[in-house]
């Protein structure tokens, strides 16, 4: 190899070769080990098994057979869907949409107010103001961390079965979601225009609404649209605990083992979520494109 351009037999320099692997510290070694142990431990605890999946073929068959009856049976079956049923399900689907929309709207409004109160330094930096900010932040955290089904159970207990409980649930869930992300968006905005307004005699509140909120607006809008998508998906399941919407029928049909009807409802839910997500995605793209064009 002596006539090659690069002489790799040059012995003297070869001990300069870089290591293939980085040396890992003992702490890091234990972290990796712990990760592996956790994977094994979790799989055991979750009772995940491929045999379990394979052994249940007969149930699969039964379920699929009842969920998708052959065309011939359709119409004579005890579960066959009449026009009346169709209208009822449609009405329930509309109710689900209304719950999600109202709940999201209220959630956005209250979430925005809480986000203002919780954003660091936005409305002030005094000691009492900081206390308010920390308290509101904790409240938002509580709204966000308690799962929506739990809120639904609580609200059903408080205001009874029906759409109102569902709407309240979605509102609280949206406050948690928007409260957090609105605050982040407003904290991330370039603060110099706001400072400029303050330096010419505006108050913190003026600076927030005249400079910070307008600059954060695209972010606020996309977050709101995300919140609505999330609410639509969430609202479907709230019926399982009696908090209104189409989920209530779905739950009942599963209890009666009327899988074929349940399939119809699942199809309707799919269509609703699909449409809402497409529209929302389109709007979000419009908002971002609009911003890119300007800058």
């Amino acid at each position: 190899m002596t006539d090659g351009l690069i002489d790799i037999d040059k012995k003297s320099e070869l001990n300069n070769l870089p290591r293939r692997y980085k040396k890992i510290s003992i702490t890091r070694y234990f972290i990796y080990l712990a990760l592996i142990v956790m994977v094994i431990w979790s799989f055991q605890g979750s009772q995940f098994s491929f045999e379990g999946l394979l052994d249940s073929t007969q149930y699969f068959k039964r379920f699929l057979g009842e969920a998708f009856p052959s065309i011939g049976i359709l119409g004579e079956n005890e579960h066959s869907i009449t026009w009346k049923d169709t209208f009822r399900y449609t009405r329930e689907l509309i109710e689900t949409f209304q719950m999600a929309f109202t709940g999201t709207l209220l959630g956005i409004i209250f979430g925005f107010i809480l986000a203002l109160l919780s954003s660091k330094g936005l409305l002030g930096n005094s000691r009492p103001m900081r206390l308010v900010q920390e308290t509101v932040k904790a409240l938002i955290l509580l709204f966000r961390t308690v799962p929506d089904l739990v809120w639904a159970i609580i609200f059903v207990m408080l205001v009874g079965l029906g759409a109102f409980a569902g709407t309240l649930t979605i509102m609280v869930d949206t406050i948690g979601f928007c409260g957090r992300f609105f605050a982040e968006e407003m904290e991330d905005v370039d603060k110099s225009p706001a400072d400029a307004l303050e330096s010419c005699g505006a108050t913190k509140l003026d600076a927030t609404f005249a400079a910070v909120v307008p600059a954060a607006m695209p972010g606020l809008i996309t977050t709101s649209l995300f919140a609505f998508e999330k609410a639509i998906r969430g609202s479907v399941i709230l019926g399982l605990v009696g908090a209104g919407g189409i989920g209530m029928s779905l739950n009942a049909l599963f209890n009666w083992m009327a899988y074929d009807r349940a399939m119809v409802i699942i199809g309707m839910i799919f269509a609703l979520i699909f449409v809402v997500e497409q529209v929302s995605q389109y709007l979000r793209r419009k908002v971002t494109q609009n911003e890119e064009k300007r800058i």
């Binding site: 110099s192 225009p193 400072d195 400029a196 303050e198 330096s199 010419c200 005699g201 108050t203 005249a210 400079a211 307008p214 600059a215 607006m217 695209p218 300007r294 800058i295």
Partner: peptide, 19 residues
């Protein structure tokens, strides 16, 4: 605040509200 309202400030970065 009153004093500041009588003093105009112009910045290197202009600091207009962009949108």
């Amino acid at each position: 605040r009153r004093m500041r309202s009588s003093i105009g400030v112009v910045f290197q970065k202009h600091n207009l509200v962009p949108r």
